[in-house]
């Protein structure tokens, strides 16, 4: 009997299972607190927000997996920049969507490249490099904003993000699912994916085995920039127009989603499927807090305390041993 219990406990302590169980519990709690919280339409709205966070977290995820204290604090800046670039390139016209996608991906890839070059060639710690880049991006946003209006989302983009596309599910959620499948294939089935884990768990050994460590790390930062750019584009579609520093609120939550998904900040261990569950969990938690009737201060205190409680459940480090 106790064996069954302990087996059940170790099953439930797997990050992704824990996240899924918590998601169901939170949905139930939300439904109790305000009937209709767990209705189909409401869940779809939650998933749209979660997919925005989840797409950013995909980039964050690969950078963290790559190890050497990998982290990308500049994603918030890239999201804002991409939203404003997209708004201006498409300027409310459907014909501008493709050029906008190209421009956003190029911008995200460019700043990711700069991050990657700083981290690999100059060996600047990722936290420092991307923190500095965040400052540059925020400055760049001010320059752009003074010169040109914030731009408009094309109707097709807004429909893609907010209206059902197939089987009653909006396009952005399909996009997120596709990204999830591609990420799982990339991480588990491709040489590139295996090399990410290799440099994340033991960079020196990977180098000795002939893995082009620097190139891969640069590619990871570029991927992170491009995922953030895609999220910025979708965010524009979600809100219709871009406003100042719209991406900043996603910076640290994207790291939390990765941690909740069971990826270790030390690198080399974890995956994206858990991160997706982590993103949904985070968004549901925030949504429950906005439905219950307390003021902002109480909401923040409960949110902070709950995050700590959840981290205690999984994502703890190992104890010191002599």
């Amino acid at each position: 009997m106790s064996q069954v219990v302990s087996r059940f406990l170790s099953f439930i302590r797997q990050p992704i299972i824990a996240a899924l169980v918590l998601i169901v519990l939170l949905l139930y709690l939300g439904q109790m607190l305000s009937p209709g919280f767990a209705s189909g339409g409401q869940i779809l709205r939650l998933l749209i927000v979660a997919s925005l966070l989840g797409i950013i977290a995909a980039g964050q995820n690969v950078v963290i997996l790559g190890g050497r204290e990998g982290i990308d604090l500049s994603v918030g800046g890239v999201v804002s920049l991409s939203a404003i670039i997209a708004g201006n390139v498409m300027n409310g016209a459907d014909s501008g969507i493709l050029p906008a996608i190209a421009a956003c991906l190029a911008a995200g890839g460019f700043f990711g490249l700069l991050n990657g070059l700083g981290v690999t060639l100059l060996r600047i710690p990722p936290l420092v490099m991307t923190l500095g880049m965040l400052g540059v991006l925020q400055g760049l946003l001010v320059v752009i904003r003074m010169g040109i209006p914030s731009g408009q989302a094309a109707p097709a983009l807004s429909r893609f993000v907010t209206q059902p596309l197939a089987f009653g599910i909006p396009g952005i959620i399909w996009l997120w699912i596709a990204i999830g499948v591609l990420m799982a294939l990339m991480l588990n089935r491709t040489v590139f994916g295996h090399r990410i884990y290799a440099i994340g768990s033991n960079e020196h050994a990977a180098y000795m085995a002939g893995v082009p460590v620097r190139l891969i790390r640069i590619a990871l930062f570029m991927l992170s920039g491009m995922f953030a750019a895609i999220a910025g584009l979708c965010l524009l579609g979600y809100s219709g127009t871009s406003f100042a520093n719209v991406g900043e609120q996603y910076m640290l939550p994207s790291i939390i989603a990765v941690v909740f998904g069971g990826t270790s900040l030390a690198g080399g261990k974890g995956g994206y499927t858990g991160t997706m569950a982590g993103a949904v969990l985070l968004v549901i938690l925030q949504s429950i807090l906005t439905t219950i009737n307390i003021d902002e201060s109480g909401r923040q205190m409960v949110f902070g305390a709950t995050l700590l409680l959840l981290m205690m459940f999984y994502g703890r480090g190992r104890a010191m041993r002599a």
Partner: peptide, 9 residues
């Protein structure tokens, strides 16, 4: 980061 949210609250 989580405690910072709490302290801000």
């Amino acid at each position: 980061f989580a405690t910072s949210i709490f302290f801000t609250g």
